[in-house]
């Protein structure tokens, strides 16, 4: 078989070189490309559907004072089923409608508490303070408290829960 490759255009050595690199690259590709997808697979999944979470009838929330509402959602990550708890403050004001604030501090994600006596939110981690409408009074957070998009459906209050 060697005579076949003795032509000056392509000697045996370069022929083998080409075959070797071709087969080698093919194998590397067949494993390598799937491997990359395999590694990044969890991040490729469709973004979870945004969800509207019911917070119950609007009348249940007293006027002019933030009311805490906690709920948990079950999530599946890989093989792990976990339950995440969320907390929101619902502030209903006469004539101004309703605003729902996240209880997550915009600084480092600690959970805020409503201090009724001082009419302020207090962050237990770095003592940040927000007023009733979520505006920063003092402390390190970079922005006011986050708000949820809300909607009313037959008297029921819903918030739009976005992932992330």
């Amino acid at each position: 078989m060697s005579s076949k490759y003795r032509s000056p255009a392509m000697d045996r050595r370069s022929f083998v070189k080409i075959i070797s690199s071709a087969l080698g690259s093919l194998m590397a590709a067949v494993v390598g490309l799937p491997a990359i997808q395999y590694f990044i697979s969890p991040s490729l999944g469709k973004e979870e559907e945004d969800e509207w979470i019911s917070l119950g009838p609007l009348e249940n929330y007293p006027l002019d004072t933030p009311t805490q509402f906690n709920f948990s959602l079950n999530k599946v990550n890989g093989w792990e089923k976990s339950s995440h708890s969320y907390g929101v403050f619902v502030l209903r004001e006469e004539g101004k409608g309703v605003v729902v604030y996240s209880d997550v501090c915009t600084h480092l994600s600690c959970r805020l508490n409503w201090i009724p006596e001082e009419e302020e939110y207090l962050c237990p981690c770095h003592a940040a303070r927000f007023d009733k409408h979520g505006n920063l009074i003092s402390g390190p957070p970079p922005r006011p408290m986050d708000r949820f998009e809300t909607k009313l459906d037959e008297g029921q209050l819903f918030i739009h829960l976005k992932e992330g």
């Binding site: 799937p34 997808q37 395999y38 697979s41 093989w79």
Partner: peptide, 12 residues
């Protein structure tokens, strides 16, 4: 999960 949930998990 590797077999069913991960892309190309079955291959690996």
């Amino acid at each position: 999960y590797i077999m069913t949930g991960v892309k190309f998990g079955w291959l690996i």
